[in-house]
Design a protein around this nucleic acid. Structure first.
Lengths: 307, 307
DNA sequence: CTGAAAGCGCTTACAG
DNA sequence: CTGAAAGCGCTTACAG
């Protein structure tokens, strides 16, 4: 301590009296660091991403970082704009990329800006990522339904061609095929709609065409949400006639009657791992290179009354 | 046009080739403007605030502004910290203040930083605000239940001493008293819990103590959510035994069986009005003072199967 | 009309 | 050790 306690007090009194607040824009201009992390998610209004954002925020706050968000809504243009917009204003990125953001993400990586992908990744790119074990989660759920003696299990997916959705479907197809239960007609792939209400009629007509279904796995929370609505509209008893399981846990599934069984993502853990990988990069000096590591976090199968 | 089209093309090609991105920190340092708006809400994970944030974001984008969020969780310290943190980095604030943020908000006003309160306000302060007509909404809902011949209508509120909650309760008490139906024991005021699951047992024991209740109005979405859970746990039929109405519309209320009737806030309109008031202030020159206006937006009573 | 220079508010390497 | 000066990347008032 080279400065006397007295002086410290004196200065702090002045700071308080004059209401001095340092200008971060100036500090950032000088140091090149902003102490802000950019979090780009698919849709901040979706329960999964909202809770992911909250977790990231709390982990980041502990190490002195703030977080700014943006939603891509799976629109490549919007996503790439967000990268552009935030690039100079954040010390690092946490990104949920849509398929078409690959070029943007590659370009970002070339600039050596710290970057971690979450929820999904590019299998052929060496970019660190943190996400749930999608394949494992759906495998376990499918096995469970088969053990419960279900024969005609349907899988409802969204045709985004993103790795996490592909893995969920691949797990379903693999397990079902292994047991000789796979039929193509039990696989429903719907387009990605901004307006999620459009899923309800689509799922309803699928259910009407496939009356033999005795269980359904929904690949996302919004598919599950509107799928349940479709089932109720058609007066199909859950789980009496059809057992139901969905990816992602939300209030709606917990509060639904019957409560819906889910493959739950450990959001806290995903956020913590992603931040760890990001901090690794941000703190890595020019010599020691941060590891191009990918982390797969195990999901949790939560059984409720819908199966 | 003083610059030839050719030159414009040439420069833009170079911009693209070199990947030039202007440094906003530098621009902001020079101009004093950031083109960012700070949105401080109660809890970004709450469906109401998430949808409000989304609306604000879309209105702001149209006029060239970005939005950064923060959640207070009704913690005065956290709220005031957010103001401090963002003060120099935003051109204006949209704030959902907790009671203890009054001093912080007053101080902010003195700095002449553009500022609009949303969702709630300080009745004795001249700060522009945009929110729903809470009194009108609950009045209408209460009248409706009385017309439906309900005699023992309960009101479940959270004891936050914030103007919007007070107005909701005041409307209920006024209407019930006018009809000679008000009983103090039908009014439940619960503390504000971070962990919302705590509301369920509290509401459950209230219901057990007051078996004569034939209708309930929940003053917030989370009270409604856990209130419905409590009713179902106790096997109280909705609406057979007890009619249910909640403030705020959410997926959960729309998807619940029975679907829950709500006093819905026109989020788009609140966001649009708040942004209008904020832009007024941000564009007001030093001479013309922006109006210290307050806007009350009418809510919508959406009747579903729970009444 | 146009180009060079000043300055926003910080941080830090450097001269003394 | 300490204080003054340079410079981060922009924008804009100003000199020529």
């Amino acid at each position: 301590m080279r400065i006397s306690e007295e002086m410290v007090k004196h200065i702090q009194a002045i700071i308080k009296k004059t209401g001095y607040i340092p200008n971060r824009a100036a500090a950032s201009l000088r140091t090149g660091r902003t102490h802000v992390i950019g979090l780009i998610v698919e849709d901040i209004a979706n329960a999964f991403f909202a809770s992911l954002a909250k977790s990231v925020e709390s982990v980041a706050a502990k190490v002195g970082y703030r977080v700014v968000y943006g939603s891509t809504e799976n629109d490549d243009g919007k996503g790439n704009d967000l990268i552009q917009l935030l690039a100079k204003q954040v010390d690092g990125f946490l990104i949920t990329p849509s398929t078409g953001m690959k070029a943007g993400v590659q370009a970002l990586k070339k600039t050596r800006k710290p970057l971690v992908l979450i929820d999904r990744y590019f299998p052929d790119e060496e970019i660190p990522f943190a996400l749930v074990d999608n394949y494992g989660g759906v495998s376990q759920a499918t096995e469970y339904l088969i053990e419960k003696n279900k024969k005609n299990i349907a899988f409802v997916n969204v045709a985004l061609d993103q790795v996490q959705m592909n893995e969920r479907e691949r797990a379903f197809v693999d397990v079902m095929s292994r047991r000789g239960l796979f039929h193509k007609k039990l696989l429903l792939r719907l387009p990605y709609y901004q307006d999620k209400t459009q899923y309800e009629p689509r799922i309803r007509s699928f259910l009407q065409k496939q009356p033999g279904i005795d269980a359904i796995i929904f690949a996302t929370n919004y598919l599950g949400m509107f799928g349940i609505k479709a089932l109720k509209d058609l007066d199909i008893a859950i789980p009496g006639k059809v057992a139901v399981l969905s990816f992602d846990d939300t209030d709606l599934f917990r509060f639904s009657s019957p409560a819906i069984s889910v493959i739950s993502q450990p959001v806290q853990e995903i956020a913590a791992q992603a931040m760890r990988l990001l901090l690794d990069q941000m703190n890595a000096g020019p010599k020691k290179k941060a590891a191009d590591e990918g982390v797969l976090v195990p999901p949790q199968l939560i059984l409720r009354n819908s199966v």
